[in-house]
Design a protein around this nucleic acid. Structure first.
Lengths: 211, 211
DNA sequence: GTCTATAATAGGATAGAC
DNA sequence: GTCTATCCTATTATAGAC
């Protein structure tokens, strides 16, 4: 898990590099952040970074793995499960938004570097996540649980609401992660449910399966 | 207006610089794009850029103005108009999404550089847009047209759906801009309207006021 | 208005002492 | 595990010819 409860100065250097680099990548972008600035934030000299990571790319690569690995697993599990697709999409959304809110890293920059050839080896994992999400949406539309909307439009709206949450919460380890998760996931389901009054039933069902 | 109907090779060099730079900024980020790459895309040598723009920053600054100026004006006009706030928000959304879809430039990178001190002089204009949008949302919630949702949550979802549209359409001058605009704006209103069945009435009313 | 040549700086990464 | 010193490349921008 990511939420180590140690004071920032007590953390191992490698961990502090990941956290400070993620914050700077999120704020200035991957290319807008120099290894000198990362080192400054961690309070070491620039070449010392290369004792912990072989390259600047390797720092980013680790952040990509943190962002994608668990999310792809959860999304795939819900996509291949049984029962209401709307409920399963809601469960995935709650998990993902909570994860983002609780995460110690600012993962803003991850999606924006995935197109770069340097990180081409991460694309398959990303595609797993995209496919699982898409399959949940299409299943819910086909079954009539969702309105007959273009799945592409629904997917884009969902993906960007999630990316916005990543950007806005930005590795701050938000305390009321559950509230934010429910608000955003509810926004999405209200927009998509054929019968919006089912929302409360879905929220209750998701709450029970967690507890 | 932005949609000059000339062949790309016929356009003045200055215009081609703006278009190619915007595409590269959108794909690789502002800092990830060098002036050499821009020049290469325009098919001139790197120093020739500086005959048309005093600096790389100035290219970005002009793209920021293109993105913000008209949008802030339209949003403010709707915010200070009378009648249903939900209808006025829908009208603004339709205008903004259509603008994005028809725009000759990829404006993806604009929002991500607004925090940079270099572009601090653009922030007031951006804030005008943010405030106008926020005011429309709060008015619709207070009047009961929208569900009692946290205005912050609604605003973030809307802003990021718009940013996603900017990113996904990416200066391609989408032909069916009106369809995309209606689909995304409808998604947003379905998520927010207390009585989702009012959506069609709002879409018709917005269509009439345009024609 | 575009070119070649080049200045000046900032970038990622390595070598080797401690 | 961190430091200083340094290499090499890429970057933005300028000077001046055509």
């Amino acid at each position: 898990m990511t939420g180590l409860e140690l004071d920032s100065e007590e953390l191992p250097t490698r961990e502090r590099i990941l956290r400070e680099a993620s914050r700077l990548f999120g704020k200035k972008g991957y290319h807008g952040t120099s290894t000198r600035k990362i080192a400054e934030a961690v309070d070491i000299r620039q070449p010392s970074l290369f004792h912990h990571f072989p390259s600047k790319d390797a720092i980013m690569a680790e952040l990509i793995d943190i962002d994608l690995d668990e999310a792809a697993t959860v999304a795939q599990a819900q996509a291949s499960a049984d029962g209401s697709a709307a409920l399963r999409l809601y469960k995935y959304l709650i998990w993902d938004i909570s994860f983002i809110c609780r995460c110690a890293y600012d993962l803003t920059s991850v999606e924006s570097v995935l197109d770069d050839p340097v990180f081409a080896d991460k694309r398959a994992r990303h595609q797993t996540l995209v496919d699982a999400r898409r399959s949940l949406i299409e299943e819910a539309i086909d079954s009539g649980e969702f309105v007959k909307v273009d799945p592409e439009v629904a997917e884009r709206a969902i993906v960007w609401i999630l990316r916005g949450d990543i950007n806005d919460t930005a590795g701050q380890a938000i305390p009321d992660a559950d509230v934010v998760a429910d608000q955003l996931a509810s926004f999405i389901l209200r927009a998509l449910l054929s019968d919006p009054s089912r929302l409360d039933e879905i929220r209750v069902a998701a709450g029970e399966s967690v507890a």
